[in-house]
Write a protein that binds this DNA or RNA. Structure first.
Length: 536
RNA sequence: UGGGGCGUCGACAAGUGGUCUAAGUCACGGGAUUUUGGAUCCCGCAUUCGGAGGUUCGAAUCCUCCCGCCCCAGCCA
């Protein structure tokens, strides 16, 4: 088995491409075959080297290695040209002088047949001569094309004398000015597959109509004939995977570049903190079929959490800090408690976490008048500070505006170090915290789905993209407090901020000024109860 | 009668004549457990396969008709 992943270098790869990559490379891996990376670079007006570099990086990052060296359709331009001459000699192709408009008008419609070009029956020698002169640059763009001579009455429009070559006086990123005629996809793809010895040419559903043409070309040429097989492209809820729209959002500033952590691009997912493993697992679980379907983005997030739960170090961070003073703890005293790094992985060991009289807790973890099922902190209530001790809230301090600025609590010395109370009373709530004098300031960026609408690609449900955007897709928190050791977090580090979610270091981070991206939240049963009104 | 596809649980998706009163995963609901309302563990979740007929001892799987959805009229890929 020999497969290939054939991107056009005209944009960045996204999660939909990942499905194709995993499929093609996965097939080769599973059946002991090979997989090529082939750039389908037949349109120099749209393609650029920067995209090739980005695609190479993304495929490698996803964990796949292609047969060296990578392939380019442009490497086959000579062969393709010779093959075109063979077609002409066989009387299966001709040079057409009609304009693009004329060709469109004579193609017919979906229900009516087209009409044949007046140039359709030119003698072979004339076609050969004209085609050669096209190659030499004697004609302007649009003046002539090479067409296959098939059937202008075919029900399949692709068979109504499709254009094989057009004149494009544009320099090519790889062949420079060597060519001014470039092959169309239909003329290039199958033959490139054939040259590379591809056995299974896997592509998306919209090419199903092209298969008869794919077969026609190879049959006429008598060349090695790979088999084209189609599958449904990925559609993800709350996500747009159209290259056109992605480019637009980058250009109009809706997002901050191709690698904005909200983008479904591989580079965006990478910056967001996704792991290659989780993306591969996702591609494995969604399966491959021919029916158009939409996968819930929750499945992608599940695959991520599943992996991060096993691998990410747990650490404490407070996103929206509220100061809490433990009045019966000696002023100026500091001690360290042992904290487990990952309950899912014993080998991750323990670390020391500094504790003192004043700590920050999450503002949302306190309610002045909490509902019954809220088992976090409230006046007179007891709660556990993870790894440290049990505290009771004695007093709520407010400013003149009536805002809560500080909590006064007392701790139970018996529970110091995380011990359970001797009297056997159960403490339901556990909070993460950060010691005030030891805290490191951090910027935390909270990300959510770019689109609040489930099917942003649906023009009926979403006539205007803007109105379907999630206004809360990015929330920047500049006043987060994190454990001291996180001040030294490195790019590529991933953590679970206890009870808050999984976070990764953003490239914007600088020494002493950490920046964290929320990769994905933790499952939030309480949040779900609140939004369903069952929290009372 | 343009051509090509697709329709199995809320979302994916196995299954292509008997082992199907239909696998698995996510989601969802319930319970246990828990120093993360996380994780983990149990339990539940399509008598039905777009619909209607038919063939057959037997159909999601074969046949007929019907319905719905997607793709194709770039000198894009």
């Amino acid at each position: 088995m020999h497969t290939r992943f054939p991107p056009e270098p005209n944009g960045f790869l996204h999660i939909g491409h990942a499905k194709s990559i995993c499929l093609n490379f996965g097939l080769a891996r599973e059946f002991g075959g090979k997989c090529n990376l082939r750039y389908d670079d037949t349109n120099p007006t749209k393609e650029e080297q920067v995209y090739i570099d980005a695609i190479n990086e993304d495929v490698r990052w996803l964990g796949f290695e292609w047969e060296q060296p990578e392939c380019y359709t442009s490497d086959y331009f000579d062969r393709l040209y010779e093959w075109a001459r063979q077609l002409i000699r066989q009387g299966d192709a001709y040079v057409d002088d009609q304009t693009a408009d004329e060709i469109r008008e004579t193609r017919g419609t979906l229900k009516e047949p087209g009409t044949e070009s007046p140039y359709r029956n030119r003698p072979v020698e004339e076609n050969l001569d004209l085609f050669e002169r096209m190659k030499k640059g004697e004609f302007d763009e649009g003046k002539k094309v090479l067409r296959a001579k098939i059937d202008m009455a075919s029900g399949n429009l692709n068979l109504r004398d499709p254009v094989l070559y057009r004149i494009l006086k544009a320099p090519h990123p790889r062949t420079g000015n060597a060519w001014c005629i470039y092959p169309m996809y239909d003329w290039a793809h199958g033959q490139s597959d054939s040259i590379e010895g591809i056995t299974h040419s896997v592509c998306t559903l919209e090419f199903e109509d092209h298969r008869p043409l794919y077969d026609w070309c190879l049959d006429k040429l008598g060349a090695f004939h790979p088999q084209q097989i189609e599958f449904a492209r990925l559609q993800l809820s709350h996500t747009l995977l159209s290259k056109r729209v992605l480019i637009q959002m980058v250009k109009d500033g809706t997002v901050n570049g191709w690698d904005d952590p909200r983008m479904p691009t591989i580079s965006g997912l990478r910056r967001r903190g996704y792991t290659p493993e989780s993306i591969r697992e996702f591609c494995e679980r969604i399966g491959v079929a021919k029916s158009n379907s939409t996968v819930e983005i929750g499945l992608l997030e599940h695959c991520l959490r599943e992996e991060l739960n096993k691998t990410a170090r747990r650490v404490m961070a407070v996103l929206n800090p509220l100061k809490l003073v433990i009045t019966n703890y000696p002023e100026g005293q500091t001690e360290e408690f042992d904290a487990e790094n990952n309950p899912e992985d014993e080998s991750a060991g323990f670390r020391k976490v500094p504790f003192s009289r004043e700590v920050y807790i999450e503002r949302d973890d306190f309610m002045e008048d909490p509902p019954k099922k809220f088992f976090r902190l409230g006046p007179g209530r007891e709660v556990r500070l993870k790894h440290a001790c049990i505290i009771r809230c004695d007093e709520v301090i407010k400013n003149d505006a009536g805002e809560i600025v500080e909590l006064h609590c007392s701790y139970d010395p018996e529970t110091r170090g995380g011990a359970n109370p001797a009297d056997g009373r159960k403490i339901k709530g556990t909070l993460q915290w950060v010691s005030v004098p030891h805290a490191v300031d951090a910027e935390v960026r909270l990300y959510d789905h770019l689109f609040s609408h489930e099917t942003p690609w649906d023009s009926k449900a979403c006539p205007e993209l803007q109105s379907c955007l999630n206004p809360e897709s990015l929330t920047v928190l500049k006043n987060a407090k994190v454990e001291p050791e996180l001040g030294a977090a490195q790019l590529g580090d991933r953590f679970q901020f206890l009870r808050m979610g999984y976070f990764s270091v953003d490239p914007d981070a600088k020494p002493g000024a950490p920046v964290f991206n929320r990769t994905v939240t933790l499952k939030d049963t309480w949040g779900k109860m609140v939004s369903k009104g069952k929290a009372g």
